[in-house]
Design a protein around this nucleic acid. Sequence first.
DNA 1: CTGAAAGCGCTTACAG
DNA 2: CTGAAAGCGCTTACAG
Lengths: 332, 332
Amino acid sequence: MKRTSLKDIAQRVGVSTALVSYVLNNKKEGRISKAIAERIRETARAMNYRTNQIAKSLKTNKTMTIGLVLADISNPFSSAIARVIEDAANESKYTVLFGSADENPERFRRLVDIFRDRQVDGLILLPPNGVGEDIRRLYEQRVPFVQLDRYYPASPGNVVALDNFTAGFDGASLLLSTGRSKIGLIAFESQLYHLRQRKLGYQQACLQAGVPPEPSLVAELGVHQLEKTVPAAIDKLLKNGADSLFFLSNTLSAIGLRHLNQLPIRVPDDLAVVSFDENELLDLFYAPLTYLQQPLEQMGRKAIEILLAAMENPQQITRINFPATLVRRRSA
Amino acid sequence: MKRTSLKDIAQRVGVSTALVSYVLNNKKEGRISKAIAERIRETARAMNYRTNQIAKSLKTNKTMTIGLVLADISNPFSSAIARVIEDAANESKYTVLFGSADENPERFRRLVDIFRDRQVDGLILLPPNGVGEDIRRLYEQRVPFVQLDRYYPASPGNVVALDNFTAGFDGASLLLSTGRSKIGLIAFESQLYHLRQRKLGYQQACLQAGVPPEPSLVAELGVHQLEKTVPAAIDKLLKNGADSLFFLSNTLSAIGLRHLNQLPIRVPDDLAVVSFDENELLDLFYAPLTYLQQPLEQMGRKAIEILLAAMENPQQITRINFPATLVRRRSA
DNA sequence: CTGAAAGCGCTTACAG
DNA sequence: CTGAAAGCGCTTACAG
């Protein structure tokens, strides 16, 4: 059963496909006789006409489609972002293609290429390590894109992210202000700028409080086997005398909490804890976690807004850092 | 900066676009002179050629694209499925468009229409309430699709789902076998078939054990305001004497656990608990939850496999129910 | 071994 | 008010 095309309608009504196209797109309003227009619309409805977006896209050079490259859609942070992007994009009639780069530069490049081959109108990127040059090239090729959450500060183009330095600073400061001076840091060994900034913020807060950060209180973990490395890191930091823990991402704290849950240690009395990002887990822990909240909804919407603007006017580039909110609860 | 087209390459090399198309697609191998082929390939590389999938799709009537309609990408169950689908689809060179229907039939229809307008080659659907007729119509229109997880038993077409009746039966049976006879059921009031089946399984298990299911032990909740209704339901069931709780979905148990966490009741001694589906939360609860595990990976892959087969041969339809695995842990 | 030509389903500048 | 025509970037049956 072939889909009905403009031509089918045109033949049935006895007009040109041009005319059918005009009325169905509400172009040239008023310059087409009401009677004909009505007949065309009716016939289109009767024949169950739906426009072939592929054909339309080929002609107009617009696919009304956005490519979203995430770390991993099954991760709560990624999927929360995906939802915001989906809704914001839909409101402007865009559909989103997504892919998970899995912290793998190769996969990232492949996804970007696939999306470009499909002629997406723009890209929202949460890039992994090692693709700074690729981002730069996208910029030079005038592909509309915005880096979201994660970004390469040295690569040009639009950015929407957190003020990660301040967030790290605020998290550590809270701990320090409650009398903790041996803050254990659980971080990724990643070179990702936003993560580096969080760590720098933490260090700055310590220095400023007259508490030189000790390397023995810092654990930097690879992305793999976290189920093993996080508990081991926690044990080590505790052995080294940590009186508090600062998790620099929700993946780390999610796993960390499971471990803390089984330890004969009481949060917050024996150990204060602060984490990044929201997560249902943080609520269920017996001492609801204090955390730094990213304004995801705002950030996602801003990213789409900037992307749409960039499609119109590629000259104007925007780089924004949103402040995190410190949500205080029982753990610190 | 215009993208380079086949024509550009053809002109540069001095051959027809047809020839360029042939060599770049490895068609007519051996029937094209090595020398020319090599020149074409080299030029394509030099000019940074990438094929325009939109144009190719228009001609071939294949977009290498799959539409995935979920309940809500930000829900862990949806996003876990999305990841499996993404990987399985990618392995076969397909890209996936996704959308969240939000338990809303209108949104579901809109998403399906949008995906079809974009000429997706097939659809993976997790349909909400009230779209049985739409599914039937898709079937009649010979659109390749498979219902995944949720489905309308009366609508024709491919299905990949859990054996929900047996899963419900097994969950309740476990509770009964450990001496619990007043099983409180926390369910959705939804008419969704897979949820109904879970409930029927529970009832059947009770009956078979000589424990007539009491309506006062069953709570069926609307999808909204669960943050309030789940705790209220739990309180009610406990008041009515429930000695155990059976959550029919992970959304329900996630919220329920937060409430149980604050109650002066000990799991499993005072109250045994069983839930559906995996979730990090289930681990963090002080009594790790016993739950019915869906073979998501298998189900997702099977869905793609069936979908690809359906694109080749629309006649053959497959309906499969996978068994759930009862994962016993401390809560029951 | 290679090319001219038609056509996929649209849109749109142009002409009348 | 309406239509003929070109063209978006590909593929492919056909002819030579």
